[in-house]
Amino acid sequence: MVEDRHVIETLGKVEVVIENGEITSVGSSEMTYCPMFHAMHGVDELNEEFIRKNINFRIEDFGMCTPDRVVEMDDAVTVGISEILKTNMEKGNIDCVVGACDGAGTLLMTNPRVVQGVGGRVSGLISTTPIPEVIKKLEERDSVILDPKTAELNQLEGLKLALDKGYKNIAITILPSPMVKDIRDYPVDDDVNIYIFVAHTTGIEPDKVGMLFDNADIVTACASKAISEYADKYEPYYYGVKVPIFCASEDGRRLLDIRLEKIGKPLSTNVYPRNKDDAPHKLL
């Protein structure tokens, strides 16, 4: 039997293993609080019972890590990475998103609803194995899978594939890693734009934060103390207080503001200090 095993990092940097549609392992974490879940659902403590309940909801609701995976979706929240990408793709500012999907691995997406569906409600994907039904759904919606046989996760190779396909305005979603710099340093033609979106930063080491801001365009705060302290020191443009989205470049600010303008929200700001009464607590 082909292995069916998916590892995601979620809800306070906890590793959860899902095999054959069932949770088989829930790791531990120093983190017991998530500002997003507190803001949206009033959750004060991320214990194992809540984590299992939340992940089971995702499995049942949109088939996460199963053949029933929903791959198209409307906006999940007001402003998140997938919403920024979806809006900018609809407006023609981005023609390809290099993302990652459970059951498929790294993939190229050109359909805005697929961009939202793949990224809208999934946490950090650490590893995954191929699910033929998911791959078929994605390919039917014009997505290209980097390696359908292995569901490899490799965003640099995804960038190379996007360039081979001739895309010029390429957005890449990625977890914090040295590969962020590798992607930024990868040689491209003058008419090619690469936009890097870094998500799931909870628990990142302080000495890695500068590299992200030096090379990315958008960096999400998640529940990262190091990201929050870096922002307070260097004062990048941002949107949101409880779970800020930080602009690491002018391109990042432009793409974020296009989403904010569409939904009638105030544009990004660099007013500091941020309102500490509203900011997340118990950061990691």
Rank of each mutant, 00 (worst) to 15 (best):
134 V>C: 09
136 K>G: 02
138 L>I: 04
138 L>M: 07
138 L>R: 06
139 E>M: 14
140 E>S: 15
140 E>P: 02
141 R>H: 13
141 R>G: 08
143 S>F: 15
143 S>V: 14
146 L>Y: 11
146 L>W: 03
146 L>Q: 04
147 D>P: 07
147 D>C: 07
148 P>V: 04
150 T>G: 04
150 T>W: 06
151 A>C: 03
152 E>V: 10
152 E>L: 07
152 E>C: 01
152 E>S: 09
153 L>E: 00
153 L>M: 06
153 L>H: 00
153 L>F: 02
153 L>V: 03
154 N>I: 00
154 N>F: 00
156 L>W: 05
156 L>M: 07
157 E>R: 15
158 G>H: 10
158 G>K: 03
159 L>I: 05
159 L>Y: 03
159 L>S: 03
159 L>T: 03
160 K>F: 11
160 K>M: 08
160 K>Y: 04
160 K>W: 06
161 L>P: 00
161 L>G: 06
161 L>F: 11
162 A>P: 00
162 A>Y: 05
162 A>W: 08
163 L>V: 06
163 L>E: 01
164 D>Y: 08
164 D>I: 01
164 D>A: 14
165 K>W: 03
165 K>T: 01
165 K>I: 00
165 K>D: 00
165 K>N: 09
166 G>E: 04
166 G>C: 04
166 G>A: 04
167 Y>D: 03
167 Y>A: 06
167 Y>F: 15
167 Y>P: 01
168 K>H: 14
168 K>Q: 12
168 K>T: 14
168 K>W: 09
168 K>F: 09
168 K>P: 01
168 K>G: 08
170 I>W: 13
170 I>F: 12
171 A>G: 15
171 A>T: 12
171 A>Q: 11
173 T>M: 11
173 T>G: 10
173 T>A: 12
174 I>D: 11
174 I>E: 10
174 I>A: 13
174 I>C: 15
174 I>Y: 14
175 L>C: 08
175 L>W: 12
175 L>P: 01
176 P>N: 10
176 P>K: 10
